[in-house]
Structures are given as structure tokens and as C-alpha cells.
């Protein structure tokens, strides 16, 4: 009864008088309609917030100009990896964050637009690890000097298209002896990390890390 009575009342927008006797469905009044609209708009805002959150998290690695690839891409143009930590590091470069003080890092940037890259590292007495960091984040390959054949770790970095081209050039029936690693981005970093367990090992570690050669494969 009261609902029928209330719906006939003019929508003045005045707040309803509280109390069980004067209770009315909210949607029928100006205040109720406003509240319903606010809830709907807030829900729409929350959905949009979810979309913005996901897009932001996915786009930060793509757009970041403070990441390691942007900082170190120019290193290694001379065909050798260059130090990024310690006193021997190239000047003007940002130091790597969260780095181990007892490890020496040398970096070589790669850009596959001009062709595949060949990386050659000599194994020494200290533990050496080579990793491929693609632009936008993610380690696409890691190898240590335990995989060295006759004291040398050697591999090629190429794009999918360059791999297809190389496979087509391979002689029929012959297995290739090259270790070929596909990078899904044209640019990235080759990082040589050598552990120097004692401070006196640092010189050897730096020599080992900067001894990593990286140049065009052909």
C-alpha cells in the first residue's frame, strides 16, 4: 500500500523520512536513483581500473627507458663485452641494481637487424655464466662454462627468420654443430657473470668476463 502511495508522491529529491513506517523502495525516489547510479558508475570505474592496471603492468617493460637494455645496449660494439660493475666499469653508466659484490659482470648489447650474433667465451678457473636478456624483460637463455667444449662456450643469437634462413642453408643430411638461440626481440643484452670468491680473484674474473667476444656471425 505504502509503495503505491509513495510512487504517487512528487519527486522532490528530499531525503526520505527514516523509520519503518515510511520505508520505501529506493529506486523510486530521486535519492535512490542517484545512489543506484553512483553504484553503477563506481562499478564501471572499478572495471576500468582493472583494465588500466593490467595494461599498465604489461606496458611498463615495453615503454621503460630506465631498464637494463636501454642503459647497456650500446656496450660491446668493439666486439668484446664491457664491465658494468666495479672500478673498471665504463663511466657514465648506471650501476646494476641488486648486484652481487662478489660477482663481476660484463655486458654486450645485441641488435639482430644486421644479422645473427656469435658469442664466444673461454672457460677459466672461476665460475662463468652467460645469459641472454631480451628487451622488455626476461632471460631467454642461460648457459654456464660447464657446457664448454674444449674450453670454449660458443653460440649464435638470431631471430626466428634468421634461423629459418640458416636451416635452409644447412647442407642436406648434415647436422649443424652450431648452438643456435632464437631471440624473440631484435635487441637485448648478453651478460657474462663471473664469480670472484676472493677479492684477489677479481682481476682474473674481470679478464674472464671482458674476454667474452660478441660480433656478427657472418
Amino acid at each position: 500500500m505504502s509503495a503505491i502511495h509513495d510512487s504517487a508522491a512528487p519527486e522532490s529529491g528530499a531525503p526520505p523520512v527514516p523509520g519503518p513506517a515510511r520505508w520505501r523502495p529506493l529506486r523510486k525516489t530521486g535519492f535512490g536513483a542517484g545512489l543506484a547510479r553512483l553504484v553503477l558508475l563506481t562499478l564501471a570505474g572499478l572495471v576500468l581500473a582493472g583494465i588500466v592496471h593490467i595494461v599498465a603492468v604489461l606496458m611498463i617493460p615495453v615503454l621503460s627507458e630506465r631498464d637494463a637494455t636501454s642503459a647497456y645496449l650500446g656496450l660491446g660494439v668493439g666486439g668484446k663485452a664491457e664491465l658494468v660493475s666495479g672500478p673498471g666499469a665504463a663511466t657514465g653508466l648506471p650501476a646494476p641494481l641488486e648486484a652481487d659484490n662478489s660477482a663481476v659482470m660484463a655486458v654486450c648489447g645485441y641488435d639482430l637487424t644486421s644479422g645473427p650474433m656469435r658469442v664466444v667465451a673461454r672457460a677459466g678457473a672461476l665460475p662463468l655464466g652467460l645469459t641472454l636478456h631480451r628487451r622488455g624483460g626476461g632471460v631467454i637463455y642461460a648457459i654456464t662454462d660447464r657446457a664448454a667444449i674444449r674450453g670454449v662456450v660458443e653460440f649464435l643469437v638470431m631471430t626466428e627468420a634468421q634461423l629459418d634462413e640458416r636451416v635452409a642453408r644447412d647442407e642436406e643430411g648434415q647436422t649443424s654443430r652450431e648452438l643456435r638461440i632464437v631471440s624473440d626481440t631484435a635487441q637485448g643484452l648478453i651478460v657474462a657473470r663471473v664469480l670472484a670468491p676472493l677479492p684477489s680473484d677479481r682481476g682474473d674474473a674481470e679478464a674472464l668476463a671482458t674476454g667474452v667476444a660478441c660480433g656478427l656471425a657472418d
Binding site: I60, E98, G129, A142
Partner: peptide, 12 residues
């Protein structure tokens, strides 16, 4: 990606 990080590789 917000800083210069070179994390250890999974096999490293």
C-alpha cells in the same frame, strides 16, 4: 624493468 636489473638466469 623499472631499474637496471640483470637477474640471474634460471640455469645460471
Amino acid at each position: 624493468a623499472r631499474g637496471v636489473h640483470l637477474p640471474l638466469g634460471a640455469g645460471e
